[in-house]
Design a protein around this nucleic acid. Sequence first.
DNA 1: CAAAGATTTTGCAGGCAACGCAATCTTACG
DNA 2: CGTAAGATTGCGTTGCCTGCAAAATCTTTG
Lengths: 205, 205
Amino acid sequence: MTILENAEAGDGLRERKKAQTRRAIHEAAYRLVDEQGFESTTIDQICHQADVSSRTFFNYYPSKNAAALGLSGESLDDGAATRFRSASGSLVDALCDMIAGGDQFAARHLRLKRLVKRNPELMPTLGSLMTAARGRLIDLAAERAASRDEAELAVSLVLAALALTVHSTTESDLPSAVRLRSSVDAIVAVRNAPLRSAELVETVA
Amino acid sequence: MTILENAEAGDGLRERKKAQTRRAIHEAAYRLVDEQGFESTTIDQICHQADVSSRTFFNYYPSKNAAALGLSGESLDDGAATRFRSASGSLVDALCDMIAGGDQFAARHLRLKRLVKRNPELMPTLGSLMTAARGRLIDLAAERAASRDEAELAVSLVLAALALTVHSTTESDLPSAVRLRSSVDAIVAVRNAPLRSAELVETVA
DNA sequence: CAAAGATTTTGCAGGCAACGCAATCTTACG
DNA sequence: CGTAAGATTGCGTTGCCTGCAAAATCTTTG
């Protein structure tokens, strides 16, 4: 039950077991990395905890990074595409809904922030994963954008905001999609922020 | 001479030799990866081409990725901080100048684009490197920003624009800093772009 | 319910990246 | 020239990750 939390509705025993194993591996990876740090956690340790052979580990996750962060390749949940296609408002708003609108998003996001905070070596990994998702997002966005260029721009903006929310320390009660949108707006608003005068800088330096 | 192109102005023989070695390694790595692909190029091959031991390789670059992309840890050139401190205009403009204002930037950027295009497996690596540089950029930006939050926002925006220019295929004659700024403006402008109607989407899907 | 069929798990063997250490060679400097 | 500082190298180790083929497990069908 502890482990099965999310592994419901499998078609057969096989499906259920797979989901369970995937979850067990991620759980073990997350816990160990959280406790010992990423570098000093070996795949063998994870496998031992999850009760699978090290070879099976790679049947579920392509790398230690992916297992720790629990990203099985698809960084978007199932409802994402649907949410995007039925969203209204601006293109950027729709992207925010798609990315952060799922019910699991907030929880996942918190876990992830915690892990990255305690373990900054994972930050680049995170960036790399976001970059990897970029292409898929652009393809989706292009469906409802005026042009592919516009889709790229919109995705760039939203991903920047997403990166921001990962690094930010504030924990808000707002729905995640709304928070993401407000990050977007904050970024846009900073475009014309003035420089502090150069003399002041000399003093600091 | 072919190799020494950029290894000028060393203080002593030692400095010059180091610069030369670093360049030789990067040159070899770049060429081999460009020809054979990233995965199928081994560090031993690179070392053989550059005439150094595999152990020395790691004295210069922390990873194969870094060697191929030629990023020696500092992704900013020497003049960067100075450029930023003496820039005028808005905070975001100053960051653009700092990042893309150097004379080597355009050339580097082109090489990099070529490599990543031919070899998409490197795209995540690129994202990871940009994320890694994030912290340093924010520290610098904070010197002339109203607050640290504002610095984070500005850096997020500029990095998003930078990612965009890497992926874009257009080759312009504008100075790099100006191009970066125009990417920034394009991103800001997309904030309120409308969605194409949902019916149209159904048709597409 | 048993045997054939489909998948998943596992062990084994190996390639390659990356680091630590200690010996050797090169440059700098008095 | 000789000594100190620093760079290069070889060797050995650990750990990530993959391919392959045998063993174990679930599914289906007669």
